[in-house]
């Protein structure tokens, strides 16, 4: 997962020990693969008024590269949407099924199955100009001090990345492996969950679940990681 040449960017993968890297690389030891497998079954399971499964409309081969270019603008084009949001939208709008709760096991598993199709591809955010204001909003949040500790994302992940916070190496915060399996969570989790964790960590108030701020941050972070290797489902400590 190392970047070529003079690129100093590091995936969180490179900052963890050999044992965890091995765990991520082995598809029968990576617990994220349990959810990919579950997602594969959900993909084929018909649901809703149209009694259609994801696989009835989409070929899974067509999902190659999709996760590496999300978030993207939604079809009506007024706000950006991340991969999990897209899956939930498809579920209600096209399958006419009951909505899936955000960050539920179903949504995360489906997202992991789709994301897994992009493993090994470079992160490639779309050149859609409508995303630009959201990317700027995301960057502004990234650089804004907030919370009782009065820290911005950039203070840790740009200025002090590679140093230690307690016993843990501060990563450069490139979202290369989401949805990913954190050993601390003991479950697959979304990038949103990671962002909420960080917000709580700096003692700021986490945004509501469906806040555009998360997607804006995701757009900025994915752009910042442009060209890095996508590795979902990642494993992190």
């Amino acid at each position: 997962m190392a970047q070529a040449g003079a690129d100093k960017r590091r995936s969180g993968y490179q900052d963890m020990g050999a044992a965890l890297q091995k765990m991520q690389d082995d598809d029968t030891a990576n617990p994220g693969m349990l959810f990919v497998q579950l997602g594969q079954q959900l993909w084929a399971k018909p649901a809703g008024g149209n009694n259609k499964a994801c696989g009835d409309c989409h070929s899974i081969g067509d999902m190659k590269g999709v996760a590496a270019r999300y978030p993207a603008m939604s079809k009506d084009g007024d706000k950006p949407i991340d991969l999990e949001g897209r899956i939930r939208l498809c579920r209600t709008a096209n399958q006419q099924a009951e909505p899936l709760a955000p960050e539920s096991r179903e949504v995360l598993s489906l997202a992991a199955f789709v994301a897994n199709q992009s493993r090994g591809l470079p992160i490639a955010p779309p050149a859609d100009p409508r995303l630009a204001p959201f990317r700027e909003q995301g960057e502004a949040i990234y650089r804004r001090r907030q919370g009782q500790l009065n820290l911005s994302c950039a203070i840790c992940h740009d200025d002090n990345a590679g140093k230690k916070l307690a016993g843990v190496t501060i990563p450069q915060a490139h979202p290369t492996g989401y949805p990913l399996y954190r050993l601390e969570w003991q479950v697959l989790g979304s990038l949103k969950r990671r962002l909420r964790n960080c917000l709580i960590g700096i003692r700021a108030e986490a945004y509501p679940y469906d806040a555009v701020a998360y997607v804006a941050l995701e757009i900025y972070l994915m752009d910042r990681a442009r060209g890095m290797v996508f590795e979902s489902p990642g494993v992190r400590p």
Binding site: D26, D27, T28, A29, M33, L34, F35, Q37, L38, Q41, L42
Partner: peptide, 8 residues
């Protein structure tokens, strides 16, 4: 839907 991964 139980998920199992076996490496043998």
């Amino acid at each position: 839907m139980t998920q199992v991964l076996i490496n043998a």
